[in-house]
Computed example of a mutant assay.
Amino acid sequence: MSRALLIVDVQNDFTEGGALAVTGGDAVAAAVTTFLAAHASDYAVIIASRDWHDAQGDNGGHFAGTPDFVDSWPVHCVAGTEGADYDPLLVTDAVTHHVRKGQGKPAYSMFEGETEAGETVGALLTAAGVLSADVVGIATDHCVRASALDAIAHGVHVRILTDLVAGVAPEPSEAALAELVHAGAELVESTDA
């Protein structure tokens, strides 16, 4: 039974000082790096995603001058900018596949993205025979939630490593974790992974 590690959107614009900074984002980046140093060999596939929005246009309504922070957001993670880069505290040497999502359209789940070679996350997991995946990253209440739900829908047993995620706000993050448990995910600490 193959396992995957899914690293969701650990990017400069989602960590401290970024356009949509999430408190604790830098700590997640550093902790994921520490986790990878000890556990990368436990995974057949390690996939990291990044928002990678077009510089021109509103990306299908995703960018707005007056965002509602539900369906529209301030400009963030524009392709090729520092904000779209991985947080420097995240060492990606062990990552086997890099996925970009959100070109010209809203995209929350890493399953909506693809590699430079055009591979989707679902296809990568199927090709590797992945039956279980650990999910980490930013933000618990948005892209981590969407990616984990899509992994479950793909037939993968999901564990959220709760000490390796950070959310925008406590209440929606708790609601997202409860929703994921209801959908079949497990919540575990990385020390128990």
Rank of each mutant, 00 (worst) to 15 (best):
M1D: 14
L5Y: 06
I7H: 02
V8C: 12
Q11S: 03
T15R: 00
E16D: 07
E16G: 08
E16K: 05
E16M: 09
G17E: 12
A19D: 05
A21K: 09
V22Y: 00
T23H: 11
G25D: 04
G25A: 08
G25M: 04
A27P: 07
V28N: 00
V28I: 10
A29N: 03
A31R: 05
T33E: 00
T34F: 00
T34V: 07
D42R: 15
D42M: 12
D42L: 13
D42K: 13
A44T: 13
R50Q: 14
R50G: 02
D54P: 02
D54R: 14
D54A: 15
D54E: 15
A55Q: 12
G57P: 07
D58T: 14
D58R: 07
N59D: 13
F63L: 11
A64F: 01
A64G: 06
G65N: 13
V70E: 08
D71I: 08
S72G: 04
P74C: 10
V75H: 08
H76I: 10
C77K: 01
G80K: 11
G80E: 06
T81F: 01
E82F: 09
E82H: 12
D87V: 08
L89D: 08
L90F: 02
L90A: 03
V95T: 09
V99R: 01
R100Y: 13
G102K: 04
G102D: 02
P106N: 14
P106E: 12
P106L: 09
M110T: 12
M110R: 10
M110Q: 10
G113Q: 01
E116I: 00
E116Y: 03
A117G: 15
E119Q: 15
A123N: 15
A127P: 06
G129F: 11
A133F: 10
A133K: 01
I138L: 15
H142T: 12
H142Q: 15
H142W: 14
H142V: 15
S147A: 11
S147G: 11
A148D: 05
I152C: 03
I152Q: 02
A153R: 15
G155H: 08
H157W: 12
V158Q: 08
R159T: 15
R159I: 11
I160A: 03
L161T: 04
D163S: 06
D163K: 05
L164F: 08
V168Y: 02
A169E: 11
S173W: 04
A176I: 05
L177S: 00
A178M: 06
H182V: 14
A183K: 01
A183E: 00
A183R: 05
L187W: 08
E189H: 13
T191A: 14
